[in-house]
Each structure stands twice: as structure tokens, then as C-alpha cells.
């Protein structure tokens, strides 16, 4: 089994993680924009984003 691992493309795992993180960051941006919208909708002053 371990000898099989040597033949795996070392980049493929990085691509999987990149996809997960891209989705995660996308979700982050999505929730941030909802938060921003909600705070504006309810008349709060918008805080500066970091």
C-alpha cells in the first residue's frame, strides 16, 4: 500500500484542499455580505470591515 502512495500525483491532494478552501472562503464572503445587508437593513451603522 505504501509503495502505491509513491506513485500518486503529489499535487492532487492540494487541489482537493484548494477546492474545499475555495468553497469555504466563498461561503465566508456570502455570510459577510448577508451580515452587512442585515446590519444596514436594521439601520445599524456599518462597521468598517477589517
Amino acid at each position: 500500500m505504501s509503495s502505491l502512495l509513491l506513485y500518486l500525483d503529489p499535487g492532487s491532494g492540494s487541489v482537493i484542499v484548494q477546492a474545499l478552501i475555495a468553497a469555504f472562503l466563498g461561503a465566508g464572503v456570502f455570510f459577510k455580505s448577508i451580515k452587512l445587508w442585515a446590519s444596514q437593513f436594521f439601520g445599524n451603522k456599518t462597521k468598517d470591515e477589517e
Partner: peptide
């Protein structure tokens, strides 16, 4: 956590479904 620990744990993973269903960036 994301870029090192999660990344390290996935290094030997094989993409499911092959190239066709792979995520488009």
C-alpha cells in the same frame, strides 16, 4: 488549520469521480 493541517491530511487523497467532475475554479 486549513492550509497546513487539513492540507496535510488530504495529501494522499485521490479525487473522487475523476477529472470530469473535478471542481472548476
Amino acid at each position: 488549520y486549513l492550509h497546513l493541517f487539513l492540507h496535510a491530511s488530504q495529501l494522499n487523497a485521490t479525487p473522487r469521480g475523476g477529472a470530469k467532475t473535478a471542481k472548476k475554479f
